[in-house]
Design a protein around this nucleic acid. Sequence first.
DNA 1: TCATGTTTAGGGTCAG
DNA 2: CTGACCCTAAACATGA
Length: 306
Amino acid sequence: MPRPGKNSYSDQKPPYSYISLTAMAIQSSSEKMLPLSDIYKFIMDRFPYYRENTQRWQNSLRHNLSFNDCFIKIPRRPDQPGKGSFWALHPDCGDMFENGSFLRRRKRFKLLRMEHSPCKSGALLHSYHSHHQHSLHQSNHHSGKMGHPPEYLGTMGRLSHFQSYTLSSGQSGGFKHPFAIESLIGRDYKGVMASGLPIASVMHHLGYPQLGGMVNSVWPHVGMLSEPVSSEYPPFSMAVKGLYHHHPGTQSMPAVPMPIKPMPTLGTVTGMPPGVAQLCPRMMDRDTTALAEEKGSSLHPALLQS
DNA sequence: TCATGTTTAGGGTCAG
DNA sequence: CTGACCCTAAACATGA
């Protein structure tokens, strides 16, 4: 077994999922958002394993970006050249990797869509997103045709004007968030988050119209991520930079406040409207805090390069 | 054309 | 055993 600092982490597959790797990449950026190509680059720079079979893992990674609600797509401003959008982390998925653990998640971060359509229930939508991989393929519930989103997702894709987003921690029912934003802005942004706040901030920074007072809310997610992994891949941790922190001149990207890591204490999440914090999913049950403290919070060597 | 993005599909692992 | 999570492959659409 290779040891850290001695030609380790070379060609062995890192223990991180693509979601983790993507989250690392995004968090490592000063703006907390990256275009797809930069996510690729981050991963390849730090994990030699991923310098091979690029088509395979990049396809998987794209799949994860699209499929997982914890990633949100942020459109480029018209004056920003380049292909594709920026990808950021959903602000409410900060505890997806509780205590900074970038290993397997316990729960998937997902947003519930409460259908207004009388013929399609929110429960179905929940089922679709929770179980689509497991034979919930009552084909009459979706188009079944590749490349064409199911009807209930609306003609514009994942987010239609007729849907409200709710946070889900896996329980049935869900919570219709008062700040569901799509009805306010009528834009087709995937993952317009349940709170609506960060995307509003993003849009503000991107030069889109401000959405009332929502953009002024504060998301005090600041903390350290640390992860006890293995001797092979020691803890990855990263200081989460302050929010609303602009780094002029670094890149042509806008300053975007992307709260990443919530407080480790249950129920103290945040600056969210009352009631929302309680609905925030605790993504992991395992208490890794003690372990993390025990092992310290050194950076993953691969990530020290930046 | 290629990069990007979405969706479906199926198999594996792990925890409850 | 079941459900949640993860990985991979692939079809397809779209835009630069």
